[in-house]
Each structure stands twice: as structure tokens, then as C-alpha cells.
Design a protein around this nucleic acid. Structure first.
Length: 253
DNA sequence: CTGACAGTAGGCC
DNA sequence: GGCCTACTGTCAG
């Protein structure tokens, strides 16, 4: 039984803020800071283990409610962000960030780690993520795992789109997904348009590449935008080359 | 145990 | 070309 239920069972609703004060004094509590995100303010909660929860906006009551529901912990506001967070949001370099993903399944942690490798201003497909973690058939499960990402934006699940170029769904709604991608410098409409036209490199043998349609290298090395390749070998034979920004993903042994 | 879900590819018309 | 379906991991009912 969680604390909220316990207090409710005492016969009267808990006064506003009581649960947080009790948790902060007797139970586990994370810190949280208000920072600027790519598309508005972000509330970022963190523990000794790392960043644990992210919510868009500045409604601290909403944040404490969600952290309580999903992490069973309280939160208290602090002024000092965890090391590396602000520069990471500014530059996109998340390498030195630490995350508190306790409670996530191993599968979910693998999916989130793969999403973390997608550079800012680029996108990859759900199939790319599935191949990257060695489970090419788990495309749908990848979507579900990303949908439960406790730290959106910081772990960029918004950079995972459908293989046909459509942006797909998002924890905070597909409109916000588009807004964030646009703020990161991606031409979302062009991704959709070229994706629909088949500008996707998909390898069934040794590589699996979703070429960012707006990537300059991809454009420069691609003589036409209307050809879909079933394999990297076929693309090479036709004089196409994969985008330099898109690292090949080895298929699972 | 079933069904639902941020998806995809292959088979069949 | 378009429709149908099996497939994956997790969770709610």
C-alpha cells in the first residue's frame, strides 16, 4: 500500500503537500530543478543515481503526483541541476549524464540506451532501434518501451519515427514531438514527404540504416529521392552511398 | 489469460 | 499498388 492510499484510509483526504513533506522527511525523495528545454520549460527530477523523471512545463504539483505514482518517491525542489544537464540540453551531448532507471525492465533499458545514441537534428526508425538492440522483430515492443520513457527529451525518444517517415506517437502527444524535432533543426515535413517517397535505406543483410532525409550528406550522395533499397549491397551497386551520419548497425548474430 | 499498444514486413490479391 | 496478418514485450483488466 502506498502512502497516499494509507492516508486516505485514515478517514480524511491528505492536506495539500502533506504526502511530499512526509516522504521528504521519512521516505525516499528525489530532487528536481526547473530548466529550459528545446520547446519550453522542463522539470527534471534526479536521485543520487542520476536523472529519474522529466516532465514538460512548470506545474510542480503535477510533477510530484507523477513521480509518486510512477516511482513511489517524493520530490523536493532544489536550485542546482545535476552535473552536465544544462550543457547536455544546450549541446545535445548526453555522454556524461547519469540516469536512475531502476524499476525499468532490461529490455526497456536497452531501448532507451539505443535512443540515447541518436544525434540531435536526426531521426531513426523504430525498426532501427529494434535492430540496434539485436531484436529486429521487436519493433512494436520498442514503441511500447519508448512510450514508458520516464525521462523524455533528455533521452530523446522523440527522435524515433516510423519507417515511412511519419513522426508517429509520443508520450506528450505527436504535436509536441514535431515541435521538439523542429526546435532541434529537423525539417519534419521533409522527413514525412521523402519518407513517403521511399528515401530509406534498409539493409536485410549486414546493415540497417535509416538515412535522415534532411541530412546534407544523404542528399549529396543520393542522385534521386524516389528509390527504396532493400539492402546496402543493392544501394551500393546502384551508385548510392549511405549517409555518413548514419552508422551501420550490425544484424544480430 | 486476453487484449491493447508510439510498428513493420511479407504474402496475397 | 493496397489490404491482412503475424510478430514482440509489457501491463491492465
Amino acid at each position: 500500500m502506498d502512502l497516499t492510499t494509507l492516508l486516505a484510509d485514515l478517514g480524511s483526504p491528505a492536506p495539500a503537500g502533506l504526502v511530499d513533506r512526509v516522504l521528504a522527511s521519512t521516505g525516499p525523495a528525489d530532487s528536481w530543478v526547473l530548466v529550459d528545454g528545446p520547446a519550453g520549460p522542463l522539470m527534471v527530477a534526479f536521485s543520487d543515481h542520476g536523472i529519474s523523471y522529466v516532465l514538460a512545463g512548470a506545474d510542480d504539483a503535477e510533477l510530484s503526483q507523477q513521480v509518486r505514482a510512477r516511482l513511489d518517491r517524493g520530490v523536493r525542489r532544489v536550485q542546482t541541476p545535476p552535473a552536465g544537464l544544462v550543457p547536455a540540453l544546450r549541446t545535445g551531448r548526453t555522454r556524461q549524464l547519469r540516469f536512475d532507471l531502476r524499476g525499468r525492465t532490461p529490455f526497456e533499458q536497452e531501448v532507451l540506451a539505443a535512443a540515447l545514441r541518436i544525434p540531435r537534428g536526426e531521426v531513426r526508425s523504430y525498426a532501427w532501434v529494434a535492430a540496434a538492440i539485436g531484436r529486429p522483430g521487436a519493433v512494436r515492443a520498442v514503441g511500447s518501451a519508448l512510450g514508458r520513457n520516464p525521462v523524455p527529451v533528455v533521452i530523446p525518444c522523440h527522435r524515433v519515427v516510423r519507417s515511412d517517415g511519419q513522426v508517429g506517437d509520443y508520450v506528450w502527444g505527436s504535436e509536441l514531438k514535431r515541435t521538439i524535432l523542429t526546435a532541434e533543426g529537423l525539417d519534419v515535413e521533409e522527413v514525412e514527404r521523402l519518407g513517403a517517397a521511399g528515401v530509406v535505406y534498409t539493409g536485410s543483410d549486414t546493415t540497417h540504416i535509416f538515412c535522415v532525409p534532411t541530412c546534407r550528406d544523404a542528399r549529396r550522395t543520393t542522385p534521386a529521392h524516389t528509390v527504396r533499397f532493400r539492402s546496402a549491397a543493392a544501394a551500393t551497386a546502384a551508385g548510392y552511398r549511405p549517409c555518413l551520419h548514419c552508422e551501420p548497425i550490425p544484424t544480430a548474430a
